[in-house]
Amino acid sequence: MSLFQSLKNSHTRLQVFAGTLLCVAALTFSSCSGGEFSNLETLPAQQFLEKPIDFLGNTYSVRAQIDSQIKWEKGVGRILAVLPEGSSKRLPVFVSEVVGDNIHIGQRFEMRVRIQEGGLVYVEALRKY
């Protein structure tokens, strides 16, 4: 009985451990994929336009549609004009060559951006939605 009970307890512990592992894995996965955008604040586009210097160094999430490509430089990246959700004004964003690959006009992306010097909206990561 004690052996049976002992075996039974050990099985329960294994189950708990496995479940814990699964939870950790799931959390890890979510933080490594979609989860890294969901934790970020959405960039307040209107305020940013009025005074970009106030947003320097911050990281935001931007959900936007690609309006046009303003400039592309091989080995550097591209400057895109995007229309953020909920905004009537377009924003210029820079997508480095290592971040973006094929980006087409009209596509919708969720982007993690960092506001850099000069008010540059630097796209660190993006994904279609």
């Binding site: 336009l49 970009p52 210029p92 000069g118």
Partner: peptide
């Protein structure tokens, strides 16, 4: 601040 200028122009 060319990025800010670009945003304003857009």
């Amino acid at each position: 601040h060319y990025a800010g200028a670009l945003a304003a122009y857009l």
